[in-house]
């Protein structure tokens, strides 16, 4: 039995996953996290630092890290890369002005070695706003089709209404589980 097998068995027993939520400021990372967790989303302020939540979902224990997206905080993102199973990249679909910033930041993340094993879920958030980009358009702008290093998926969602949040997280869990907990 190799070391990898032992490690896998260990994690399988705990059924624990580490999920990192990143994206530009005002993308809706904290709102997604709180909405998913059934909390009040009316009073969310821009995140100065980070939020951590441990959620139980479908028998899995999800350690979710939501790190602030302001420019001055982005250099700290790398401190959270270690051991990440899933990366949720949140896009403000209505923020046309900064869509290129968004693309650049995501590309920088994907070359990170420490995120190498992570599954990528892109949430095209704020679909409730009129004039927001469709998920298909965002897929093209972010050039997702060129990603060969990660399993990825893009879904339109609205943190405000909760649309598609569950579907997205379910897909993420399934994909991680199929990679990490494949021993059954």
């Amino acid at each position: 039995m190799g070391l990898l097998t032992i490690l896998k068995k260990q994690r399988q027993k705990e059924k624990e996953m580490r999920i990192l939520i990143l994206g530009l400021d005002n993308a809706g990372k904290t709102t997604i996290l709180k909405k998913f967790n059934g909390e009040d989303i009316d009073t969310i302020s821009p995140t100065l630092g980070f939020n951590i939540k441990t959620l139980e979902h479908r028998g899995f224990k999800l350690n979710v890290w939501d790190v602030g997206g302001q420019k001055s905080l982005r250099s700290y993102w790398r401190n959270y890369f270690e051991q990440t199973d899933g990366l949720i990249w949140v896009v403000d679909s209505a923020d046309r002005r900064r869509m290129l910033d968004c693309q650049q930041e995501l590309k920088q993340l994907l070359v990170e070695e420490r995120l190498g094993g992570a599954t990528l879920l892109v949430f095209a958030n704020k679909q409730d706003l009129p004039g927001s980009f469709k998920a298909e358009e965002i897929k093209q702008i972010l050039d997702l089709d060129s990603i060969k290093t990660h399993h990825w998926q893009i879904l339109p969602c609205s943190a405000l209404s909760g649309q598609n949040l569950l579907n997205g997280v379910d897909w993420l869990i399934d994909d991680i589980a199929s990679r990490v907990f494949t021993l059954d």
Partner: peptide, 16 residues
């Protein structure tokens, strides 16, 4: 190192 890509560099993208 953080210099591989410069995110502030403007890239022309008519779509945006």
């Amino acid at each position: 190192p953080n210099t591989v890509v410069n995110p502030t560099q403007p890239i022309s993208a008519p779509a945006m």
